[in-house]
Write a protein that binds this DNA or RNA. Structure first.
Lengths: 341, 341
DNA sequence: AATAAATCTTTACGCGCGTAAAATTTTTAT
DNA sequence: ATAAAAATTTTACGCGCGTAAAGATTTATT
């Protein structure tokens, strides 16, 4: 394939017959050079597999092509999935995404952002930890780097927020549950990591009132990001104490529901919507795993594609100079009916 | 906190009263300068929050402090978990890890490695896709960059291999299953993505022979990395055709087992080790999710900590110049007894 | 205290590329 | 064909730091 080794842009420009500044311009944006020039460069690119030194590039460019993607917990397949989606969109747009996880730790979140700074990113897609985040550090970061907040909003930080409409989520699934059986009680963490949880509780209360039903919220103890275990332990306790006033339980999120399902199993409580079942359980998020619980989990799913598309497009537009006032976009979810409720 | 802004090492060296080359030396390795010098630098570091420009550093250093961590599928919590572990160890050792996922796609795997090259990494921790990997591209990469292969080995590539002892895994759990009930049949993918699967099948066959039992392997169709769905569909088919010759099923891995459990549920087949259950199901891997299946999954778990510790230490030692011949290390797993078998 | 060894300072160059300015060439418009 | 506009080439400098070499200083050794 390739002939003699090219070690820098100087040599490549000689080999391609195009001056170095023009070659540099080409690598910055291939569309910025005349078509005949572009063709000559690309022909040379096929002969020699030269690629500009990324460190030298980034050192001098005012604006790099780096994009940071930061999620609270990469071990959660929900975030892994959305991160994958965002990553692809950035690459396709000619950027270099780098993936970071706060691993559920607010201090680490700050560390990650601090490290990100040194990459001089053109922009950052950030899903904050939420309640536990060090708000001031996030705010300072957002001032310095164009940052789009997704998944869970922290006030009006960054250039915009893109996420799901938690009110619609909970209203919609509460409505479904009310129409198909006993009205649900609401199963949640007392001190949730994520502000979306509060919206969901409120939406549940609103919906129940609108339907003329008596709401019941079961708030369980537990700290951190081990939601399944928290749901399992809380579920055991709630079941043992017969805290559920109805046979239908709407969980604040799918991971909590997964833990609750395990607790139900361990207590011999049969879950499902058939007559032989004792209770119905539903989740919220459309977690990648929700299809494979036993019973498969009825849930309301994020529109992964739409959220990540909107998030990536908004950030990249802002990077390209499109200034617009801070805006919050919340997309609707889709009900996924399965055997659990 | 910080006083006047420092914008480069020149200014910082002036502020700290230490010459720039010595400061440079300090940032390369703080231990390489006299203690009194180190203290003066670190005192200045507290006053001014200067950090060397990472691009300028990497441009000139023969060896960067970058380490790549590449996994086949980050959306799989098993890999997310081990990646997190490796990441931490690299950071603690003073390196800058960057996380990559091939997202189950061999072409992407090559792209990732190609991109990694431009980061001039001091070393790479690579869990290859396996069977589908473009072997030649991996081999070429391993020649150019110190690469430690983990999780699943591809011949004798890289500086070493660290993973789990699949023979021990399967022998051990097969032994357990034989001692506690009917001997198991083996549930696997016909064309597994991962070479470990072949070892496990072979170990199953060996173990069954050693125990004097008739082995039975059920190889199901399915391509790609959607193991749960493959296991579910294959499970449905095997159940419908009554292919299982015994009431005990050992799955090649936990994700397959999770899918099989879902199939069992959907067919009304009760899983567990109590008398009222129709079959027992066991997995292999100690997948983070295996605790929360219904019933919770009996499995044999990787020693996550030991594997990542050994992997990171081996790579970092090699980076530090410790040359040693290629070596394969396979660590034993621990049986985790739960309700499913 | 004298010598050797280790460390630091000074000086200087190079890495690979971005980018600015002026001169030149090519393309487009009139 | 000619002028104007657009693109390219030439020339030159700078980015922030690594690193080498020679000399000066500090520390360790006897």
């Amino acid at each position: 394939m390739s002939e003699a080794k090219i070690k820098n842009m100087e040599e490549f420009s000689a080999a391609s017959g195009i001056s170095r500044p023009t070659v540099s311009k080409y690598f910055h944006d291939p569309e910025s050079v005349r078509q005949s020039t572009r063709e000559r460069i690309e022909k040379a690119l096929e002969r020699y597999d030269y690629r500009p030194n990324i460190f030298a590039m980034n050192q001098n460019r005012k604006l790099t092509k780096n994009v940071g993607i930061v999620v609270p917990l990469l071990a959660d397949p929900y975030f892994a999935e959305i991160a994958r989606n965002l990553e692809r969109r950035c690459i396709d747009a000619g950027y270099r995404p780098t993936l970071f996880s706060a691993h559920g730790d607010p201090d680490l979140e700050v560390d990650v952002l601090e490290n990100l700074r040194s990459l001089k990113p053109a922009g950052v897609l950030l899903a904050p930890l939420g309640r536990a985040s060090h708000r001031d550090a996030l705010a300072k970061f957002c001032e310095d780097v164009p940052t789009l907040i997704f998944d869970s909003s922290v006030e009006e930080l960054g250039i915009a927020f893109v996420g799901s409409d938690n009110f619609q989520f909970t209203s919609h699934i509460t409505d479904y549950l009310c129409r198909t059986g006993e009205p649900p009680c609401f199963f949640e963490m007392k001190t949730p990591a994520n502000p979306n949880a509060h919206r969901r509780r409120q939406a549940y209360l609103n919906a129940m009132e609108a339907f003329g039903h008596q709401p019941q919220v079961i708030s369980i103890e537990g700290e951190g990001w081990g939601f399944e275990e928290i749901g399992r332990l809380g579920g055991h306790e709630a079941l043992a104490n017969k805290e559920f006033s109805t046979n239908t339980i709407l969980c604040s999120n799918d991971r909590l529901a997964i833990g609750l399902l395990t607790a139900c199993y361990e207590q011999g409580v049969k879950v499902g919507r058939t007559p032989d079942c004792a209770i119905r359980v539903a989740g919220q998020d459309g977690h990648p795993h929700s299809r494979y619980t036993c019973p498969p989990l009825t849930t309301i799913s994020h529109d992964y594609d739409a959220v990540s598309k909107h998030a990536a497009e908004t950030l990249l537009a802002a990077i390209d100079g499109q200034v617009s006032p801070w805006k919050s976009t919340r997309l609707e979810g889709k009900l996924i009916l399965r055997a659990s409720a």
